[in-house]
Amino acid sequence: MIEFTAFLAATLVTVPLIGLYIIYFVSVKTTRNKQVSFKIAVDSTVLLFIISVYFLFLEIWRIHTGWMIVLFFLFTALIFTVLHWKNYEDIKLQRLFKGVWRFQFVVFFILYFILVIYGMIFRILA
């Protein structure tokens, strides 16, 4: 059972799109609403994409980017907080956190594909 759990975790970190699809599929079957299911899948797989990007950086350039990821998260949270305060004058934490979290998904989703393509080209040419 431990080997299966390790295999599943390694697969989901290596290919987070599988986790995104599985969560979306299960969620569509339970909620019967594709838009809500997509939001649930996106919110649930942000950490998979962050961890995947971390390991891709580590594999390609041998640098630890954990502190950069944390700083990026805090910086975007700061920017979103200021923008939210300027627009609404009242900060709603749940809405703010959801916006930051989904923005992180978009950034790390794009970074994942860029790093995978770059990593493949880098390994082929090296």
Rank of each mutant, 00 (worst) to 15 (best):
M1G: 12
M1L: 14
E3S: 13
F4W: 10
T5E: 09
T5F: 12
A9N: 11
A10T: 12
V13P: 03
V13A: 07
V13Q: 05
P16Y: 00
P16S: 00
I18Y: 14
Y21S: 14
Y21H: 07
I22D: 04
F25H: 15
K29N: 11
T30K: 12
R32F: 12
Q35T: 09
Q35C: 00
Q35V: 06
V36C: 06
S37W: 10
F38T: 12
F38Q: 13
F38W: 14
K39H: 14
I40V: 15
T45A: 07
L48E: 01
L48S: 01
I50Y: 03
I50T: 09
S52T: 01
F55S: 10
L58W: 14
L58I: 08
W61I: 02
W61H: 09
W61G: 04
R62C: 02
I63V: 13
H64V: 12
G66C: 04
W67N: 05
I69M: 13
V70Q: 07
L71A: 10
F73R: 07
F75D: 03
A77M: 09
V82S: 05
H84E: 01
K86G: 11
I91N: 10
L93E: 08
L93Q: 08
L93G: 07
R95A: 15
R95G: 11
R95N: 13
R95Q: 15
L96A: 08
V100R: 08
W101D: 02
R102V: 13
R102P: 12
V106R: 10
F108N: 04
F109D: 04
L111A: 14
Y112R: 07
Y112D: 10
I114N: 14
V116H: 06
V116M: 09
I117L: 15
I117S: 14
I117P: 05
Y118G: 01
G119F: 03
M120G: 13
F122R: 04
R123E: 01
A126H: 14
